[in-house]
Amino acid sequence: MSPESRSQAIAAAIILLGAGLVLYFLPTIVLWIGNFSPVLGIAVGVCLIMAFFAVFWLRARYQRSKGK
């Protein structure tokens, strides 16, 4: 395994682990915030889901800018 592919595999594992933790605790977080404000609970839930895709979008932009 080349150092570059090893780095990519580690980055993907960290991203997936972080996303898995957020998605696992997402219902608890949204329900807790929803006790204060249902609209805020929905907004936080949407932001957390969008953050998952934003990480991959930003990583793709970074890779494109490096010319890979």
Rank of each mutant, 00 (worst) to 15 (best):
P27I: 04
N35Q: 15
L17D: 09
L23F: 05
I15Q: 12
N35Y: 12
A43W: 04
L40A: 15
F36T: 14
Y24T: 09
I15M: 10
A43N: 09
I15V: 15
F25G: 03
V22L: 09
I29H: 02
P38T: 10
A43C: 11
G20E: 07
V30L: 07
L40W: 12
G41F: 03
P38H: 07
I33Q: 08
V30Q: 10
V39H: 09
G18N: 01
V22T: 09
G41R: 01
V22Q: 00
I14C: 11
A43T: 14
N35A: 15
G20Y: 02
Y24A: 12
G34E: 10
P38K: 07
W32L: 15
S37F: 00
G34V: 11
G34S: 08
A19Y: 04
V22A: 11
I33W: 01
V39A: 15
P38C: 08
G34K: 09
I42L: 15
L31V: 08
V39L: 15
F36G: 07
A12S: 04
L40D: 13
G18T: 01
S37K: 01
P27Q: 04
A13N: 06
F25H: 03
I14P: 01
I29D: 06
I14H: 08
I33E: 05
G34W: 07
L23T: 03
Y24E: 04
